[in-house]
Design a binder for these strands. Structure first.
Lengths: 162, 162
DNA sequence: GTGCTTGCAAAGACTTTGCAAACTT
DNA sequence: AAGTTTGCAAAGTCTTTGCAAGCAC
């Protein structure tokens, strides 16, 4: 593991990590599972189950929608991808190239783009709140819905083009 | 309006507020809409669309599922109820007896119960982050998933009984 | 060979929509 | 009277599941 800064730790060889994860869980290393894994790591931005299916099929055209849906929970459990639920619309996923834990999402209500932002204080906040309720925090999500000022000012947002 | 504290402002006569909202939008004040509104305010906890349908029908048995689904966005837009998306499972809703804006949700992963907690700093956080992206915050959501320590320690959680 | 995995198609869960009748204004 | 709004049932969307064939170990 290479420490990049306090928040960010690079996962080395995630492909092998995933294989080891499968074996450790008594699951089999199939071509389809690896194609789905590879597809997830080739997709740089947030992606939906459907995006992942399309990409996986470019790598192995035998991959079915069912297998993608069956694999997503496994990938999520392995920690190599994260599930990001922005409320409206579908669920999104994102690969964890860096094992960043405390990230907030800023969602542009104009173009739908999702920005990932560090929010380390979430850890402290979760603990503080949970203490009062006699609970133990497992994970936290912070989401900011916002409007694009470029667009409000100029009528255009270059980011939307992406 | 009665100021209870900095975060909490009581909405007086939400029923009239809703009627006025409908009129101001050129929408009609129908029995079904009012039954759905009343049902939402009788339900004290978080509720789903289906919960709301059941309750509405007790007040006016002509209310259909379609009308509930058609009314939810109106109620949400009026600000009298809030939509709460906890990710997995359905969407939940909650009436805004107090017009509380900055609330986080703590969700018990053991019993599914949702606790509402004040989190005023979210306003500051949203602004700070949005400034960097040249955006304007519209709303923010903070969610903490946690486990119940009562249950972990004693095997039982009284809160789950609710 | 054993039994986990797969693709397919059907089923499920939740939400939206087209349409004629009913209702608000 | 004019134009919304409604209930119903059908359609839609996304996800899950049963099953026999196929594959990893």
């Amino acid at each position: 593991m290479t420490v990049l800064n306090e928040q960010t730790v690079e996962i080395e060889n995630p492909r092998d990590t995933f294989k080891k994860f499968l074996v450790s869980k008594g699951l089999r290393v199939t071509n389809q599972r690896m194609a789905i894994f590879d597809a997830a790591f080739e997709l740089n931005d947030h992606f939906t189950a459907e995006d992942l299916l399309d990409r996986s099929r470019q790598l192995d055209d035998s991959v079915s929608r069912a297998t993608v849906y069956r694999s997503l929970p496994i990938l999520t459990e392995s920690g190599l991808i994260r599930e990001i639920d922005v409320g409206h619309d579908n669920k999104y996923y994102h690969s964890n190239r860096q094992a960043r834990t405390f990230q907030a999402q800023v969602i542009c209500e104009d173009c739908g783009k999702i920005f990932e932002v560090d929010a380390p204080f979430m850890e402290w906040y979760g603990k503080t709140v949970c203490d009062k309720l006699n609970m133990k925090p497992e994970s936290q999500r912070l989401q900011v819905n916002a409007h694009c000022l470029f667009r409000a000012e100029t009528g255009v947002c270059e980011r939307a083009a992406k």
